[in-house]
């Protein structure tokens, strides 16, 4: 059997030190597989974002290990980690983080160029998220849900096997929120990507294949 898209063991993360130290994660095991969408849920401050950042190779755990498609990431130098994120992962953020001065198509093209793909793929990617008609609109001309879909199209550039989303629906109303999560679920199932979605919203959780609860930095069974 091939390796899981993402696999983490015994993750512990302590922010700061001494009196002010915060143990954000405490011995977390986690796995994400191709073709599956998982919801990571838990109260505020429970460590969801922290876990996602470690899985996304943006934060080194205090203890424990992360494997991306079987490869141990500990000890990789920063440029190699950046390359791993660029080529194997797509990120979706709560506040979209689009480039405001670029159009929808150009936002996607930045990612395409970075990943060494043909810029001509942008319209098809936007088509895929239902924005085929908004190629030349700037973010300020798009609704929240549309912006998040541009962000998803950008994350899909270069067809990374792993998608990591931190509260992608938090700024959206429930209809748009559900639409975005449905889109992510569809991408997981139809394109066999491993999708991890952090969310507070139980209605979003319903659409996931699996829900992982986290509380005080520990996975709840």
């Amino acid at each position: 059997m091939s390796a899981a898209a993402l696999e983490a063991r015994g993750l512990t993360l302590v922010y700061g030190s001494g009196e002010t130290a915060v143990r954000a994660l405490d011995g977390v095991d986690f796995q994400a597989n191709a073709g599956e969408i998982q919801a990571l849920m838990g109260p505020s401050g429970s460590g969801k974002t922290t876990l996602l950042m470690i899985l996304g190779c943006l934060l080194h755990p205090t203890a424990g290990e992360v494997r991306v498609e079987g490869q141990l990431v500990a000890g990789l130098p920063n440029p190699a980690l950046a390359r791993l994120r660029l080529q194997r992962m797509g990120f979706i953020f709560q506040s979209y983080n689009l480039f405001p001065a670029l159009t929808a198509a150009e936002n996607v093209q930045v990612a395409l160029e970075l990943k060494g793909h043909d810029l001509g793929e942008a319209p098809a990617l936007l088509e895929l998220v239902g924005l085929g008609g908004r190629l030349h609109n700037f973010p300020r001309q798009l609704s929240g849900g549309e912006k998040q879909r541009v962000a998803i199209a950008r994350a899909l550039a270069g067809a990374p096997p792993i998608l990591l989303a931190d509260e992608p629906t938090a700024a959206l109303d429930s209809i748009n929120g559900r639409a975005v999560v449905k889109l992510l679920a569809q991408l997981a199932h139809e394109q066999r990507r491993a999708v991890v979605v952090v969310t507070h919203d139980p209605r979003v959780g319903d659409l996931a294949d699996r829900i992982v609860h986290i509380e005080d930095g520990r996975i709840q069974c």
Binding site: A82, R85, L86, Q87, P100, V110, L114
Partner: peptide, 16 residues
């Protein structure tokens, strides 16, 4: 600055 942060998070090389 946030855009540069986004670029770095996406894995853009320093050169970009």
């Amino acid at each position: 600055l946030p855009e540069f942060g986004t670029l770095r998070a996406m894995g853009a090389p320093r050169a970009f």
